[in-house]
């Protein structure tokens, strides 16, 4: 299969999973994020050749960004363009932060950048990220940390988490939402 055809068939499958996930289908959404993380890893690894240690952190940062902004995907827009714009934004952001500390050539100049490549390459080998999200999670205030721990790590429903924490159901939902955004900001800020 050509790179373009491979990319197109991957794209349609991913797009369906994302749309189902946005309606609350956790299984489809899990499949979307899992496949996406392999594509992102391949994309970042090619562009961060000089800093392999950064790849997994950036994959996690991009996944959090994509999750937090999943509502900005327009169902009529190519998914590749949307993911590529976010991946490239996070990559450039990382390079800018690093540029403050060391001189470097921009890998975007050395590796040709095209959106179709994103979904035609994948890398399932997850390395350990250096930045530990568990530590960042511990920095969040209780009103954000507890909802995330209860619903996302322990797998309780919103109603169960509300009872377990004594918070209201809407406070649980808001806490998860704001907590994941705060987590994304912490990842970006710590490097």
């Amino acid at each position: 299969m050509t790179e373009q055809a491979q990319s197109d068939s991957n794209e349609e499958r991913l797009r369906q999973s994302l749309l189902r996930g946005r309606d609350g289908d956790a299984v489809a959404y899990h499949g979307f994020l899992k496949a996406l993380s392999a594509h992102l890893r391949a994309y970042f690894r090619r562009r961060l050749g000089a800093w392999p240690d950064e790849v997994e952190d950036l994959v996690q940062e991009a996944l959090l960004a994509i999750h937090n902004q999943r509502q900005t995907y327009d169902a009529g827009q190519p998914l590749t363009a949307w993911v590529h714009a976010i991946a490239k934004y996070k990559l450039v952001d990382l390079l800018r932060r690093r540029a403050g500390r060391e001189r470097l050539t921009d890998p975007l100049d050395t590796v040709p950048d095209n959106a179709a490549e994103l979904f035609s390459t994948a890398d399932g080998e997850a390395a350990e990220a250096r930045g530990d999200l568990h530590k960042l999670l511990a920095q969040l205030p209780d009103r954000q940390r507890l909802p995330i721990v209860r619903t996302k790590l322990e797998g309780l429903s919103v109603a169960e988490a509300a009872i377990a924490t004594g918070m209201s159901e809407s406070a649980i939902k808001v806490g998860v939402h704001r907590g994941l955004k705060a987590l994304a900001a912490l990842i970006g800020g710590e490097r």
């Binding site: 309606d23 509502q71 327009d74 997850a126 999200l133």
Partner: peptide
């Protein structure tokens, strides 16, 4: 945290998004 753990965390109990956030 491994990336697979993060993926699981994000997908677990995922709530439906509200429509038309941009508009």
């Amino acid at each position: 945290m491994k990336t697979d753990e993060l993926v699981l965390l994000l997908a677990t109990g995922v709530e439906p998004v509200e429509p038309h956030p941009v508009g």
